[in-house]
Design a protein around this nucleic acid. Structure first.
Lengths: 167, 167
DNA sequence: TCATTATAGTTAGCTAGCTAACTAATTGCA
DNA sequence: TGCAATTAGTTAGCTAGCTAACTATAATGA
């Protein structure tokens, strides 16, 4: 993820505008600020999760498993839900298994599949993390009042609808 | 970067709210949507840059070098500006050098330092990419009118000011 | 002066993403 | 029925981050 600390200043932008006349300074700053704030927050979240020996990838796998009634799922489904490749999911599950947070169960009618289940240790890990997470999230998002929060969502969804433009 | 495809639906959120009473559904959705739209756009940008054999890391190094009057800088400065470690910068410069987009110049009074300079090939690479980039960025950000764009920035900066909460 | 401290760059080894290629198992259809 | 196509999971090898440790050089201060 983009992580530029020094956004271009006025002088630099002027230089670039000269070389590349299509540049629109406001738009560039809005876009870069958007990516930058998001990556800063994402890194902060990782730092927070790191204090519980988790990172976003592993944390999400645990959360996806907790959604299920029997606290278990299959890797390919998890991969789709998490938006990562099956290969990546193999790695995430390996790490979680090594730490004792999930277990692999081969009990299945389809012998290509394996099931992944959150262990008791995995559940108590989440029970430690989540209250702290929700309290911090509450503080964070309280910078917006109700109207601002809704407007923020509207703007985000408008931007999202245009993501094909870079493809 | 967080990349969850399936944001929690109402039923799942209800289940979580039961287990973790501090959860505030609107806030969770706003936060996750924010990270998700940003990571989608970041991935789209990478796809776009990939069509020019670049990725964000390398692209930013080239841009940082183009800011300089003599098109050159030193790795440690580049690392600070790009917000990556010196080790990561070594790797980025290696890749760029292998592709002939930058060169390393050891000409220096401080023999610990080396200078990195954009080559003519690197400059023409950017001259290919940037007009296309600015045109697409223009289309993307045109979903916002002037007022919306300014409001978006205000909201982003408010959120940014709270990033310490997860640390 | 010269020993300590700080800085620059690299290397090694980690996480976490990717694609492509592989094995095993299942499904589907001629 | 049996072969082809599909699916599930893993592995190998890539990019791009990180920290920690290392070498070389420069700066500092007793």
């Amino acid at each position: 993820m983009l992580q530029v600390k020094e956004l271009p200043d006025a002088e630099v932008l002027k230089k670039f505008t000269k070389r590349y006349p299509d540049a629109n300074i406001e738009q560039v700053l809005q876009f870069l600020t958007f990516l930058r704030v998001a990556s800063d927050l994402s890194n902060s979240l990782d730092q927070f999760l790191g204090s519980y020996d988790l990172l976003q990838g592993r944390w999400w796998v645990l959360l996806l498993l907790m959604r299920e009634d029997d606290f278990s799922s299959v890797p390919s489904t998890l991969a789709k839900q998490a938006g990562v490749s099956r290969a990546t999911m193999t790695g995430l599950v390996n790490g979680l298994q090594r730490d004792g947070l999930v277990s692999r169960v081969t009990d299945s009618h389809d012998r290509r599949q394996s099931r992944v289940r959150v262990t008791a240790k995995g559940q108590s890990k989440l029970d430690e993390v989540m209250p702290d997470y929700y309290q911090r999230l509450n503080k964070l998002m309280s910078v917006f009042d109700k109207e601002q929060g809704e407007h923020f969502m509207t703007l985000l969804l408008a931007l999202k609808s245009q993501r094909h433009i870079f493809e």
